[in-house]
Amino acid sequence: MNFSVAMCVYEGDNPLFFDKAIKSILDNTLIPDEIILIVDGPVSKKHEQIIDKYFKELTVYRFKENQGHGVARRKSLELCNNELVALMDADDICLKDRFEKQINVFKNNSKLSIVGGQIEEFIDDVENIIGKREVPLSDDNIKTYMKKRCPMNQVTVMFKKKDIIKAGNYLDWYSNEDYYLWIRMALNNLKFQNIDDTLVYVRVGKEAYQRRGGKKYFLSEFRLQNYMLKKGIISVPRWIINVAERFVLQIVMPNKLRGIIFQKLARR
């Protein structure tokens, strides 16, 4: 089965990590037919050197100014020529059999729209794993979990392009473009699955968990909870619990404590 990889890079991405991310795609047991790279605004000379290094493997589209994740991912999907599309971030590392495992799942179940998996988070080196984000596996459990938290690890997903388009494609929603898309896919009765294997090593900074808070972050989550309530995905009691938990975690809680909570309780 042919498939594409959609990837975005912007000036804030580390060029060395960007290089390793592309290499991990090309080192897979199944190589994509194309890699669509969105250059989201001006990037450094070092970024350009990496792009030049892999120019034969990349199809590059450039935005003159930074557009943000939602817009960049939307454009990358529009440019993909294959029905199956895998996402990849510019600083993560694919496991060598990631794509092979996902393709096999699609071969065994043609009704699926999206297949993701587990992630392990590391600092500096993949040997320094500091957490694992485990998500539910079956369609029913994913849609139940969706009522409380984001049920897919975005950087691991492979999906059918036509089904993402059916749900409206990626749309801008601060820090929650992926969660917003999964919700709309569920509203369109599309089928989800996650693999019970780690598919991607995700690079995080030492303060990554601590930064997942603040007024702007909370308001984005608050709006998303309102959307789920309006669409009948969650009940009023569930809305109250979700908003209260996020208010405490993202507004009330000090950054350092938030970091501990995310690492110890929200991850394994």
Rank of each mutant, 00 (worst) to 15 (best):
S110P: 13
C94Y: 02
V85E: 00
E78S: 07
N108P: 06
F99N: 09
S76I: 00
Y54L: 04
F55G: 04
A90K: 01
N109W: 03
Q102R: 12
C94H: 09
E65D: 13
N81H: 15
K64S: 14
V60Y: 08
L95F: 13
L79N: 07
K107D: 15
V85P: 08
L77M: 14
L58V: 06
Q67D: 04
K101W: 07
A90T: 06
M88E: 09
F55M: 13
L58R: 04
A86L: 05
K56L: 10
H69V: 14
N66D: 11
V71N: 05
S110K: 15
N104C: 10
L87Y: 07
D89E: 12
Y54P: 04
E57D: 14
L112P: 02
K96N: 14
F55C: 14
T59A: 09
G70L: 04
N82M: 08
V60S: 04
Y54M: 00
D92Y: 01
L112Y: 02
R74H: 09
D91P: 08
S76P: 00
A72Q: 09
L95V: 14
E100Y: 14
H69E: 13
V71W: 03
F99R: 11
S76M: 05
L58T: 00
K101E: 07
Y54S: 02
V85L: 01
D97Y: 03
R73H: 08
K107P: 12
K111A: 15
Q102Y: 08
T59C: 11
L58W: 04
K101Y: 10
D92N: 10
L84W: 14
N81W: 15
I103E: 01
T59W: 04
A90P: 07
E78H: 06
F63H: 01
L58N: 05
S76Y: 02
E83F: 05
I93S: 03
G68R: 01
D97T: 12
N108F: 08
T59Y: 11
K75S: 00
V105F: 10
L95G: 02
A86T: 02
L77G: 04
E78W: 06
F55E: 13
D89L: 01
Q102M: 14
F99P: 10
N82I: 09
K111C: 10
K75W: 01
V85K: 02
K64V: 12
I93T: 05
V71A: 02
D91Y: 07
E65Q: 12
D91T: 08
R62Q: 11
Q102C: 07
R98I: 00
N81D: 15
R73T: 05
R74S: 08
K107M: 15
L79G: 05
K56M: 00
E78F: 03
K75F: 06
L77N: 10
L58H: 06
K101A: 04
K75A: 00
L112V: 00
V85A: 00
I103F: 12
K96D: 10
D89Q: 08
